[in-house]
């Protein structure tokens, strides 16, 4: 059963009615095409108006939509000859991070992403896309391998956050994330980061330091979950919607803040309504950025990547209230 969000219900109901009417007309050999066309137009208009006015909270819901295409599905749709590689060569294999090599638009690349599952069973086996230190270390290992062979790196971000637990702490969650940030900032091959769902804090950023940060229209990227923010700041997790507004976590907000480089449109109704189309829209923009970046010399690549992050939150000296 597909999950229907509250605000999706009006047009989904209409679409169901259209489907019923279509099969009814076929069964009874009745011409209802005028009626159906009218309803289709209304459904489209309804969808358009709902999606033109999404609140940040509704985007949070879309970004977490259980039917939203995940890393594995995009890898299947966008890459040829993909082979998955495992392990951090140190402690273990973390199924919450997918990594490997494949071909993208003719170029051999390294692909890494957080791996959420399609159903509960899959999600449990992948820890809902929440990585342990070994997941981040596998990612860094594969990035260094990419650097050795001059392969561009493409990462997909989709995680509620880094795993929180005893083992993760014992094995240095902080250290693993920090090493990735440092490693990615200096990697001498192009890095394209694509935020496809939930960009949850440090665990997301650990795969997120790139020459380009592309973000799907209904993806989110946030320093903390809206629920976490509301419960810490206002001691009231039920104010998550308000926190979602305040945190400026939508793709368009982050573009305006200069955090992401481009917002990639999704099919009307969201990527889950038409995954193939969503993948095609991604491919088009990824190809263009990759072709541009492939022509940049490694030194210049690293220099401009660092410069890009260097200017985030550039603050001015303010005399007056401070000492």
């Amino acid at each position: 059963m597909p999950t229907i969000l509250d605000f999706e219900r009006p047009f989904v109901e209409l679409e169901n009615k259209i489907a019923e009417l279509t099969s009814f007309s076929r069964e009874k050999d009745l011409d209802l095409s005028g009626e159906i066309e009218h309803l289709e137009k209304r459904a489209e208009e309804l969808k358009r108006s709902i999606f033109a006015n999404l609140t940040p909270w509704q985007r949070v819901q879309l970004a977490r939509h259980p039917d939203r295409p995940n890393t594995e599905e995009y890898v299947r749709m966008l890459f040829e000859d993909f082979i998955e590689f495992h392990g951090d060569r140190c402690y273990g294999e973390d199924p919450a991070v997918l990594g490997g090599i494949g071909r993208f638009n003719g170029t051999a690349v390294t692909v890494i992403g957080h791996r959420k599952g399609r159903d509960t069973r899959e999600n449990v086996s992948r820890n809902f896309g929440m990585a342990h230190p070994e997941g981040f270390r596998k990612a860094l290992r594969l990035m260094h391998q990419a650097e050795k062979f001059g392969r561009p790196v493409i990462t997909f971000i989709d995680t509620p956050g880094a795993h929180c637990g005893v083992g993760a702490e014992e094995r240095g969650q902080s250290c693993a994330i920090a090493q990735n940030l440092l490693g990615m900032s200096a990697l001498r091959v192009p890095i394209i980061v694509v935020v496809i769902g939930e960009g949850g804090s440090g665990g997301a950023l650990a795969l997120g330091v790139g020459d380009r940060i592309l973000m799907q229209e209904h993806a989110i990227f946030s320093v903390i979950s809206p629920e976490g923010c509301a419960s810490i700041l206002w001691k009231d997790p039920s104010r998550a919607q308000e926190a979602a507004e305040a945190l400026k976590l939508t793709a368009h907000d982050l573009l305006a803040l200069g955090i992401v480089d481009e917002v990639i449109p999704e099919p009307l109704g969201g990527a889950h309504r038409d995954p193939k189309r969503a993948a095609a829209l991604l491919r088009e923009r990824m190809v263009q950025h990759l072709e541009t970046l492939k022509r940049v010399a490694p030194e210049e690549l690293v220099r401009s990547r660092c410069a890009k992050f260097r200017q985030i939150g550039l603050v001015s000296e303010e005399a007056g209230e401070s000492g």
Partner: peptide, 19 residues
């Protein structure tokens, strides 16, 4: 940790300081 009230601008300081 990162300062919540500065959202992603704060989170990105992690990458900036690491660099």
């Amino acid at each position: 940790g990162a300062r919540m009230q500065e959202g992603m601008v704060a989170l990105m300081q992690m990458a900036k300081t690491a660099a």
